[in-house]
Structure formats: C-alpha cells, structure tokens
Design a protein around this nucleic acid. Structure first.
Lengths: 236, 236
DNA sequence: CGTTTGCTTGATACGTATCAAAGTTGGTGG
DNA sequence: CCACCAACTTTGATACGTATCAAGCAAACG
C-alpha cells in the first residue's frame, strides 16, 4: 500500500470546532498559542492506560478507539471517537492517570491541549465547558447503550449494531453496499463486541454466507443493511 | 415496620452541595427561587425512561438507581447515585427524553431544578458547569468499569465487586461485619450484575455457605470482606 | 521465500439462562 | 391473633451460547 501524502492541518482548523467556537477573535488569539497539531499513524497510541494526564486531544481528522486492557491480555473497546470529539478529558479533568488507552484507527490529526493550559482556559472562559459537557454526555449515553447491549443481546446482535454504527461514522456508499472505510481487524471487532476473535469470525462468516456482509480488501461491506438492522433489532 | 418520621430538608441544604457552592450569597438568593425539595418513598420513581426532560435532580439524601428497561422485561441498573450526585443531566442538557428511569432505593430527598431554570442558571453562572462535568466524569468512569466487568468477569466476581461498592456507599460497621443498609432484593442485585435472579441467588447462597456474606432482616451483611475482595480481584 | 500476522474451522468444556415448582416472609384484614 | 395473599426466595433439571484449545490456511512483508 503506497503511503498517502497527508497535509498537516492548520491549528486554525480548531477554531471551527467546539469548544473553541464560542471564543471571540481576541480570545482565540490568546488561546491558540501553545496549541499544536499532532499526527498519528494508523495503529499508533496517543497515550496508554495508566499514563499521567499530560494533555487533552481534540480530534480534527480520523478515528480513535478508547481501549481498556485487562490483566489477562484481553482488550475492550469502550468507544470510537470521531472528528469533533475530545479524548482524555476524564484524566485531564480529575488529574488522574488515563483510564483507557487511545489508539488511532486510521490516520489521525488532533489538537493537543496540555492539561494546565486546558484547565486555565476553562477557568478563564467558562463558556467552553458546554462543549465538554456535550461530549461527556455523548459518552455516557454510548456507554449506557453498550452496557445494555452486553447484558441483553447475543454476539450476533451486538456485532450487527456495531457494524451499522461504524457504517454511520465512517461509511461510504458504493455499488454493492456500504463500505466501512476504517481498516478493522476481526480482533478489533471482537474487542468492540466484548467477545473473542473466534466467535466474531464465526458470526461474520455466517453473515457473509447469507449475503448480509462481505470483506473486500480488508474492508467490511454491508450488502444488506436492512437485514442487518433486523438482526440488530430482533428482541428475542 | 413503623413508618419513620422524616424531616423535610430545607432548600438551604442545597447551598452546601455542588454546583451551588460556587455561588455568592446574592447569586444564591437569586437562584434559589423556583427550587424546591421533593421527597420520594423507597421504590418510587422520580421519572421513567422516555419521559420528557422536565427537571434535573440533585440528591440531598438517599440513593437512586438509574435503570434501563429492556423490551423483554429485563431491567439493568446502570449506576447507583448518592447524595451530592445529579440525576437526569443527560436528558435535561440535550433536551431529549430521559434515557433511563430513576428509582429511589431508600427514602430520598432531592432538589428539583426545572430544565429551563437549570439551563438559564448555567448560562448566567458558567462556573457551575464544573460540578456537572465532575459528575459526568464519575459516571463515565463507572460505566467504563461496568463494561469491562461485564466482558471479562464472571457473575461471582461482579457480585463481589458490587457488594463491596454498596458497602462503601451505604455500609454500616457492626459486630459481625459490614451491613449494607440499602434494602435490596435479589432481583436488584441481579439487575446490577447483569444476570438473572436465579443466578444471583445461587451465587449468594454459595457465598453464604462459605461464611462470606449473610442476610439479616433482608439486609446483606459482609462477614468476610477480605475474602470478598479476593474474589472480586481474582484475575482468572 | 521464509516468517509473521491475521483469518478460519473444528471439537469440547463451562457458565449461565431458562423453565418449573416449591418454600419463606411480611403485611392485611377479618 | 390467625389465615391469607402477594412478593420474594430458593433449589433442581436442562438447554444453549460462547470461551477455550488446537491446528491449518491465506495474505502481507522484509
């Protein structure tokens, strides 16, 4: 695969994203010093569970998985974050180590906001807190859904749900269905569904045989979104 | 059991609890109009999943379980909230129906803050947002733990963890161990552990036979906290 | 071209859900 | 005070979904 040329985003891009949208030009001019854009390759980690809370990251481009590592070597994906989302808020806010690792799922560009700077910003421009609250709110809602999903649904339903969500956040319409552009391994999907690779594979194989999904060049294609939705919603 | 006389808390109590602590006397005087204390009996619901977001509640006394109902009739306890915690923030903030029901686990007293009032307060005194962020942060952390617990732990470990947590938030030291003062049914515990009543009962019975826990007058007593911790931490 | 990494399939074991039925408890009203 | 009722608890038998262990296969890579 040829390496893509990727232009580095300007820090000015951040101005268009919450929480910076609430700032006036003067305020922004003051705030932007000390902020800088960072790039991460697919598979790279922004930070690891347990690291001291150095900075909060605002995603400009790409997708980040929040991953918990279990002592037994099992990984669990708590959430998948997109452009506009923040990563690392918990730790930065409370001044405790990151409670999950942040892994780039594709090419990622972020604005890194050092902890001190962020706290200072928030004290000086409390209006910015609204954006933080919205982001946390989204996360609580997602985690609540995930808990419910883990308790009442079987792997097949959970995977169906996950594929539909992934298509929504990084899907591309093509002739034979929705392509999930994120380069995900079966292990990644298993970690999102709270199951093992083998079970994830078996489930996806069954779906492939039924013509519901397919894999092309490592990308998952949803061939029959309606049937997938039906599986996701099946209440028994 | 004789009905206890319970004094209604004064609205002034709220002044000592975040997010109101950040207000000056004048600000508080302005804010407190329109706020009122509400009481709920054990088992009562403050609101149901799907209700319009009428108000946010600040707990002054008692404990509230956030519960999701599944179509199949299964309940899932997402979190147990204590004095100082807020309930209903998500819905109030985003203006969407409550995503879970709020059930009083014991005698509860709250300050009800109508949605409009709350949003207005937050715009006028943005410093108050900090308390909201802290509360959300706690919830995200708890839900993350819960997800991890559901994925990697077996029922026994999950229950052990839950009992220890409950002892911490509503435990009382007595001669033969820690008594969990909340009046919880086996069904409640099952809903917290993401399992069925029968399995919860079997697990607790086993623990009782081993002298780890016991039930006295419907209250759970932790007789051997150390052994319980060991079960909760066992990594295999 | 060999080596690693990810994918796939099979056989088996284990934990938990489910269904069924009976026992216990606290509260109610006669 | 007793009888009754409803809600909660308990135990047993069985079925099912998924983890686990094992082994082979395909594709990517230096």
């Amino acid at each position: 695969m040829p390496t893509k040329r990727v232009k580095t985003a300007s820090i000015e891009l951040a101005r268009k994203v919450p929480p910076f949208t609430v700032l006036s030009s003067e305020e922004w001019a003051e705030v932007r010093t000390g902020l800088h854009v960072r790039k991460y390759e697919e598979g790279a980690f922004l930070f690891f569970e347990g690291d001291p809370p150095a900075a909060l990251y605002l995603i400009l481009e790409g997708h980040i998985a929040l991953v918990r590592h279990s002592p037994e070597g099992r990984d669990i994906v708590l959430d998948v974050m997109r452009p506009g989302n923040m990563v690392g808020e918990l730790a930065v806010f409370e001044g405790v180590p990151y409670s999950a690792s942040a892994k780039a799922l594709d090419h990622v560009q972020v604005v890194a906001i050092p902890r001190d700077k962020f706290l200072h910003m928030l004290r000086r421009y409390p209006r910015m807190a609204t954006a933080v609250i919205y982001d946390l709110t989204r996360r609580v809602r997602h985690l609540s859904d995930l808990v419910q999903s883990l308790v009442i649904e079987r792997v097949e339903q959970r995977l169906a749900r996950i594929l539909l969500r992934l298509a929504k956040i990084s899907g591309e319409r093509t002739e034979d269905g929705w392509v999930i552009t994120l380069p995900l391994t079966r292990q990644d999907l298993a970690d999102m569904a709270g199951t093992t690779v083998e079970t994830a594979i078996r489930t996806l194989s069954r779906m492939r045989k039924e013509g519901i999904v397919d894999t092309v060049h490592g990308r998952i294609v949803i061939r029959d979104a309606e049937r997938l939705s039906r599986i996701a919603e099946t209440s028994e």
